[in-house]
Design a protein around this nucleic acid. Structure first.
Lengths: 353, 353
DNA sequence: CCACAATATTGAATCGATTCAAAATCCCGA
DNA sequence: TCGGGATTTTGAATCGATTCAATATTGTGG
């Protein structure tokens, strides 16, 4: 910190050995005679030298031993959002095992994002492409480091990515409700486009929605069709994936005539907020209304009632991502991992009427 | 990434300019004639040069523009634990505003922790001293970077730290319950020492507990004493600050005769688990049992019922910590920030009997 | 057309370590 | 005491950029 920063060269000179030897004292101590080693160590202590500076070492080694996780979201996203946290936790587990560090990189604005991506000291990136995925990928490409995109809905097969089978997952969720006997189902969609809040017409889904919610929607529709239910018959309420818009969506759904007996929520976060709204309105889950979430975040397992959801294989996603980057063995094709319907206490047959 | 890594020198040579000029093209473009700039940029593109490598720049500049947050916990802790997350979110907010990155550094074991601390590419550290704080401080000291300790209960005034007034906070929490009329109160303590699980005798608090829970305990006792209640009259159940041990503690508290009408929990996490246990047992909060948490994490504001708690000034702690490190203006004395009692729906007068 | 100021470019030093071929030293048996 | 293999140490090159004093070029007014 101070001015007179001591460096390895200073220690070497003061101890009367070459810089190479001094370096060895710290990085490969077994290589240097004990007597010399001790002398150097002593001098180092006297001078207040705290061991090799990582920056110098880094320049030679070229390896940082850390991976960056990036998203077009504020930094708080990584610690706030249930999905991001589930993923970060899983990534943390893998990194812990391999002694790798994690740097979270994010951005308030475009310009800063570019700068952050370019200056992050990492060996590679995991990209959380929830929003603005294309841009994020483009930016990261320039950095010329290994990266892998998650939650990306893009067709471009040249982008290393790990995906999940959102269509099948959505279908499983809807089918579960249908099998229980529900025929009056409403959908809570997610997205960050302002236009897609409030009642959303089915025609707008394909052109306007991001890939993830779009695929989930198609999954819902697919199962619904199997039971002869038309798209127009299931109301879609768009949310901004936050509490206020979810509450508003529920309000709209239940203030209209013929309220739904079951809700398909495109994320657990939204589902959990919806359940809170229902509880505050005195509606019982699952007796009055069934709710199915999506993602399988830990909160879903401890909510009251515990939430039925479609779980992502977070551990598997994390494992593949981290090893792909660390070993620079990026997947050549887009793999879509399977999701698993986890039935818990938030779904039941509709009340007979 | 391949083998033939292009560097600035290559670009310079290929473009027929000096390395200095080439450097300027990227870092201070206004300094070089447009014609030259364009030529260099073109050559760079052809060669596949992706801009200055951060590692080289770093070595010169010496500044990373990132701060490390460290704890003697696995990496998952930062994304899992409510308290850590609240802090991380607050830190993220401050860092976002100043364009600073965050690296989380942690450790499974001692050895790895030392290595991680020493090799983290950061300008300074924020230390989460929930456990093993002394050791963490010692390790970080060697790195000779600015650091600031949080949640440290240590007397050593030479350690830059930001603390909170746990005694006053604990007293406020207890006083709140006492004012409501509760006289039969139980305490849920927290700690990672195996010995302090289950029923804890008051005598063991001072010698065995970590500073934070110890101070909170003294705060509770202080208020209790004001109302003439002896230490021995309030049962203390130790938890490991996780779900299973909290559930076990509640079990013990309520299976004995004369169950408490109110619970003082030393953290919101524990309080929230306790409330879940109560709900599952059919006990109503606050009608049957009042619960007060500690910390003021966001979950406490959205739980059902919303949790009364003693809130830490997370934003203020984060602001002070980050600016202290970034400006290398570390506090010279231990400041203890005030806590605020936030009364919500989990506390009420005890049922008349 | 020249002197002189303003602007661009160069080249070498620097940041703080690691690495490795070559040189020096050590150790041991003959 | 000497040879020669094993072990240590040295010194210089290298990693990939930035910086800045010195030099070259351009532009302007007289």
């Amino acid at each position: 910190m101070g001015k007179g920063h001591v460096r390895l060269a200073d220690v070497a000179k003061a101890a009367g050995v070459s810089q190479g030897t001094a370096s060895n004292v710290f990085s490969r101590p077994e290589m240097v005679r004990e007597e010399v080693r001790e002398r150097v160590l002593n001098v180092a202590r006297e001078l207040g030298y705290g061991g090799p500076d990582i920056k110098g070492r880094l320049l030679r080694a070229g390896r940082v031993n850390a991976i960056g996780v990036a998203a077009v979201e504020p930094l708080t996203y990584f610690f706030d959002d249930p999905w991001a946290r589930s993923l970060m936790t899983a990534i943390g587990e893998v990194c812990d095992a391999s002694g790798t560090g994690i740097a979270v990189v994010s951005a308030m604005n475009e310009e800063r994002l570019a700068w952050n991506i370019n200056s992050a000291l990492v060996d590679g990136f995991i990209l959380l492409c929830v929003e603005g995925g294309e841009r994020l990928v483009e930016l990261t490409r320039q950095r010329q480091l290994p990266f892998i995109a998650l939650a990306l809905g893009i067709e471009d097969e040249t982008i290393p990515a790990i995906g999940i089978d959102n269509v099948a997952g959505g279908a499983a969720a809807a089918r579960h409700l249908l099998e229980l006997g529900h025929r009056n189902i409403a959908i809570l969609s997610i997205g960050d486009v302002d236009g897609l809040v409030g009642r959303v017409a089915p025609e707008r889904v394909d052109p306007e929605m991001e890939a993830t919610p779009r695929d989930r929607m198609h999954g819902y529709w697919q199962a619904l069709a199997e039971y002869g239910i038309a798209r127009d018959a299931v109301p879609i309420q768009g949310t901004l994936h936050d509490r206020p818009s979810t509450l508003a969506a529920m309000e709209a759904l239940f203030s209209a005539g013929n309220p739904p007996t079951a809700i398909l929520a495109m994320s657990d976060k939204v589902a959990l907020h919806a359940m809170q709204w229902l509880a505050e309105r005195g509606l019982k889950v699952p007796e009055d209304v069934s709710v199915v979430g999506f993602d399988g975040v830990p909160e879903a397992a401890t909510s009251l009632p515990r939430l039925t959801t479609v779980a992502q294989p977070f551990a598997e996603i994390a494992r593949r991502s981290v090893t792909a980057i660390l070993e620079n063995a990026l997947p050549q094709n887009h793999e879509a991992l399977d999701l698993e319907l986890v039935v818990r206490d938030s779904t039941a047959a509709p009340r007979p009427r």
